[in-house]
Every structure is written in C-alpha cells, then in structure tokens.
Nucleic acid binder design. Structure first.
Lengths: 221, 221
DNA sequence: TAAAGTATGATAGTATTACTATTATAAAAA
DNA sequence: TTTTTATAATAGTAATACTATCATACTTTA
C-alpha cells in the first residue's frame, strides 16, 4: 500500500514527489532551513548542497516562500493523517481532544513511511517558521489560491470535536487555532525566551494546554 | 511635563528621538512598513521617502531588523505605560486583567503625546510583524543583548496579577503570553483567514479572550 | 572669533540575492 | 529512431544590504 501526503498543486511548478531531484530538494531544504533559518536559506545554497543548479530548483518552486508553504502544508496533512489514525474508534470527544494535544506537544518521531522527510527537523521548522507563511502582504491572494487549506481543514475538523463536547461554546475554531499556535510559540519560548513561560518540558506544555483547552470549553460562565 | 517612551540603547546606533531626522526615520518607517510589509521594506525606499540617503539611515540603525525591534519595543513600552495608568487605583485583580484584555483588543487611538508616532499604524505592524523580531536564528544572541526586555517586563507584570487572582495556578506567564499572541493572530485571522476564527469584531475577540483567560485561571480541575 | 567636532548629504562601490534566459546533453517515451 | 523531457551549465540582470569616502553645513568650545 502506498501512503502519500498530497499537497495542493498550486504551490509547486512540478511535483517534487515525482522525481529523485524533487525529493532531494524537499529533503535538503528541510535540513538547510533547519540549520540556517528561513531568512538565510537560498535556492543557491540548496542547489550547492544537492549538487544541482539554482535553475533546476526553480523548475520545482517559484520561490522559497512557495517551498515553505509546501513544507508546512505537508506537516499539517501528515498531522491530520496521524490524528485520524489515533482517534479512530475513540468515541469520547474529550479523549479525542486529549489525543490532539498530546500529538502537538509530544516529541515528533521520524515516520519511516516517508523516507526522504525528516519529520523531527520539519517540526522544528514548523515551530519557528510556519507563521511566516501567512504573515505577509500577499496573504489574501495566497489564501484565494488555496495555499492554507491544509491548516484550515485541520482546524475545522478539531473544532467539530469541540462542538461535540460543548455545543453552546461560541469560539471552537478560535480556540483550536489558539491552542495550535500556542503550542508552537510556547515551545519556542521555553527554548529561547524562558521568561515568557513556565513550561520547560513537553509534559508541562501538555498540562498547560490541556488545562486551558478543557477549562475554556467547559466553563459556562 | 515630558513623557517619553525610552527604548533600550542597544538596538540603535544613535537615538532616533534625539534629532529631526531620527524622528522622521521612525515616523516614515512606520508608514512604509504598514504599506508594503516588513519583507519589502528597505532602507533605500525609506531614504527616498524622507528625502535623505541610505547612509544616513544606517547611522541610526544597523539594519532593518534592529529598527523593527525598536518599533515593537516602543509599542510594548507604550502599552505598559497606558496599562499602568488605567489600572491605577483599581484594587480588584480581576478588573485589572479585564482592563488588560480590553486594551489589547479594542481599537488603538492615536496618542497626541507622541507627535511623530502613528500608533494605529504601529499596532497593525505589531499584529503582523512583531513575532518576526524573535522568530530568527539570532534570537538567543538578541535576547542576551536585552532586546526583548520590554515584552518580558509586560508579561511579568501581568502574570503577577494572575497570581494575585489564583496563587495556585501554575502557568501565569504562559497564559499571559498566549493571550497577547492570540490577540494578534486572531485579529489577523479575522481580517485575512476567517475560516480559522469565529471572532469577527473587536468585541467578540474581547469576549473570546476574557472567557478563555478567566476560565483558565479559575478552573481548579 | 577661530578651530574643532558633529551631523548629514552625495556619491561610489561590493557581495549577495532573487530571479530569467539560453544552450547543451543525457535519458526516457513514442 | 526520433522526439520529448529533464537536468546541467553558463550567463546575465535588477535589487538588496550593506561599507567607505569626501564635502559641507551647522554647533560647540577654547
């Protein structure tokens, strides 16, 4: 059986999954962005690393921003796929939301299903770079082109579970998107700006987010 | 009486508040970043707008990243100053936290105390660009140089109020930093990615955040 | 009041980035 | 076998992110 994480076609010029060079581009852009950060990442450096040329990379992606959108979308689709799996046959909405928080707070493990993707490095990229995909002046155009549907789909699915748990709660999507973003920057803060958080480990972050999530959902006041 | 928002000296080469050119740099970098976004903002374009030269701008700021740190720090100091004022003589910690949420959710008004600063535009910049000041590979070095103390001070002060309200709650700083960041991207989502939030106005954002904040603080479970 | 210091402007120059275009060549498909 | 396609090699452009030098005007201070 083939499991593939499909990414909306608009964000690449040629499907990187369709060739060795393409998979090389993905694998090495993950390691390079992880090492030097998105600002210092260039197609030229990437081309040097894979012993190819800038022009060849440009045949797959219009620019590095589209490549980042691809990587982040891949991550959301992969998380969605793992969540679907983990929540399967679990009837309790509370338990399903717990599984969700556990998945976004616990350390990511490399998934051998996707050989060329280093999910651990990709997760670090998602933590520090994912908000840059939408925090731009092109956000409206990019959104119209459907670049953010992976994230939107995930938030929608999870907000439905919140609704199951408390149909009267008014802000399920806002709460889910807050929990997801919070998981990222609280993790970032605990590593780099520890004055901004008490969370110093995966398990304390999990506690913080579960408590916030369930207190908010169940509070009627 | 002179009210001045003081910014830590490390982030500029020459205090922009000390000269007309400096104030011009600040005023016009706010309007230019607001218009074109931080990525497309350059010192060359700024110099053209103020009819000066790139070299002159470089005499005030090492690079555009340091300038952004300056602007964002200015905003946090200004918010801190307004909060101190608004919370003065209010003994109830709950009411003080309500005032805090109202300040970060309600529309910003231009403050005539600071002639050359357009606080409304600056607030838009803070919403879409402020996280970029720390989401870099240089975050640890920048933090050691004290570039983030304005934000850290604000979070610390507010977390003390959370502690007053519930001394047993384990994550006051994490909660406050989450509420502040959430105020930003929920606002951004409601304008650009409305599928990610139910909040469609300042007042609904205020409701969402107040409910989340106080449910979390008071929930004992 | 003259000399010295300081701030800005004008101009030039460099390395890097973010691309686009052209041609050659090797491998795969028809 | 011809044609198509993918990639490599190379070159080139405009913009970015600076650094350096020098002239000049305006302020201090001796």
């Amino acid at each position: 059986m083939i499991v593939q994480v499909k990414i909306q076609e608009q964000c690449f010029l040629k499907d990187p999954d369709s060739s060795e060079l393409g998979q090389n581009i993905i694998a090495n852009s993950i390691s390079l962005i992880d090492e030097v950060g998105f600002e210092a990442f260039t197609f030229k450096k990437l081309a040097q690393r894979i012993e190819s040329t800038e022009a060849s990379v440009y045949r797959y992606f219009e620019n590095k921003h589209k490549l980042l959108i691809y990587l982040v979308s891949w991550y959301w689709n992969w998380l969605d796929y793992r969540l679907t799996f983990a929540m399967h046959n679990i009837s309790s909405p509370k338990r399903r939301l717990e599984i969700f928080v556990e998945h976004i707070t616990q350390p990511v493990k490399v998934d051998p299903t996707f050989g060329h993707i280093d999910e651990v490095a990709l997760h670090r990229i998602v933590i520090s770079e994912s908000s840059k995909v939408y925090l731009t002046k092109e956000v409206d155009a990019d959104n119209e082109d459907g670049y953010f549907i992976s994230f939107q789909k995930l938030v929608k699915e999870l907000s439905m579970i919140v609704r199951e748990l408390n149909p009267k709660y008014k802000f399920p999507s806002a709460l889910i998107s807050t929990v997801i973003e919070s998981a990222h920057f609280q993790r970032f803060f605990s590593t780099h700006l520890c004055a901004l958080t008490e969370s110093d480990s995966e398990s304390s972050l999990e506690k913080f987010l579960k408590h916030m999530l369930f207190s908010t959902i169940s509070s009627t006041k």
